[in-house]
Amino acid sequence: MPIEVQYVWYTYPSGIEALKGISLTVEDRDFLVIMGPNGAGKTTLLKTLNGLIKPTKGRVLVDGVDTRHATVAELSRKVGLVFQNPDHQLFCSTVEEEIAFALRNFGFNEEEIKERVEWALETLGLEEYRDVSPLMLSGGEKKRVALASVLVWDPKYLVLDEPTLGQDYAQKEKLREIICGLLGQRAVIIVTHDIEFVVDFRPRPRVALMADGRIIAEGKAEEVLTDPELLSRASLVRPQVPEVLFNLREKGLPVRTDVLDLVEARDAIISLARGLA
């Protein structure tokens, strides 16, 4: 059973309309990326998925359960939300305890806690830090601990808010590797600005673009992220590969532009050169 966001509106108590009629479905083992400028309502949307925010209008169904009729804790068992900034949540004296925190809240028994913490440490390559205070870790490691502290209860839907924020290239690549390893067994939903990070994923995700509280486009990455008009409506910088091809076409050269992959782009350019020769 899926997550179904049905025509959801949300207005903050301050009067700001953050969501204006969002509809979205996340299937089992789905891979979805949500992109858009700050203030588009991305984080608000994520918070409706585990009930931290209840829609003002419309409804969110998680495996058939209306989020208005379940607690955040109940919904979180299925929808694991990892927040943007690990500094907002890390508080335990060791990484191991930090990761076990949620399991204790959910009432797992000690034996299972041990097993699952072990699995999470291993999956995220954090074994060597198990006895270290999470506050002493570097930014990249903190991010991984925060991810582990949610992944540990194996939620059916794993939701990551801006996982690459403040990360360097090597850390991003490591994160990509980890996320790719998690795909196929659960649904992964990522909110990010980082278009080149999204472009390099194999398999490629489905992409939804948000602007001003609405979803303005949804589809395959190859289609959405190579559409300059859509990208500018979502205030995104165009990825470099299709941008090169676009510029070529503008110069009157016949070349396809719906390409995100480097090797494909190379072949397109080579065949263009041959064709003209």
Partner: peptide, 29 residues
């Protein structure tokens, strides 16, 4: 608060002492 609730922390469960203890994960960060 939202981040910890997303990790299963239930702030308004239990007696006053248990409740106060539940604020530790919020106060430390």
């Amino acid at each position: 608060m939202d981040a910890q609730r997303a990790r299963g922390l239930e702030l308004d469960k239990g007696g006053p002492i248990a409740r106060a203890r539940r604020y530790i994960p919020i106060l430390i960060p």
